[in-house]
Amino acid sequence: MIEIVSATRCVECDICVKVCPTNVFDATEHGAPVIARQDDCQTCFLCEIYCPTDALYVAEFAEGPTGITEVEVEERLLFGSYARALGWARGKAGGSQFDPTHRIRVAQ
């Protein structure tokens, strides 16, 4: 579930407000968006990869917040980790040409 909008990383572009398919965020007058409807989050991790500054963190537990802190996410280098695994960077798509899923399907 979405848990962290890092005010230090966020550049207030409001892209997450636009792209979150379940309308979890609200834009604010001056500042980073807020998590307004956390329970609607479907833990799809897509806001993370669209964020140009890796300012969002979605924890793995889908049923409710875990209470993980921004300090821990920074220390464990988890900000942007899903985007890096896909090959996306700074909110831009990339990496699908290196997807080895066809090898898995053969092994299956």
Binding site: E60, P100, R103
Partner: peptide, 20 residues
């Protein structure tokens, strides 16, 4: 080898493990 392909080809499957 398959472990590597799984990780690279299905990265979201590993997000829960890595984060936990």
């Amino acid at each position: 080898a398959l472990q590597g392909w799984l990780r690279q080809g299905q990265p979201n499957c590993f997000v829960p493990y890595d984060r936990a």
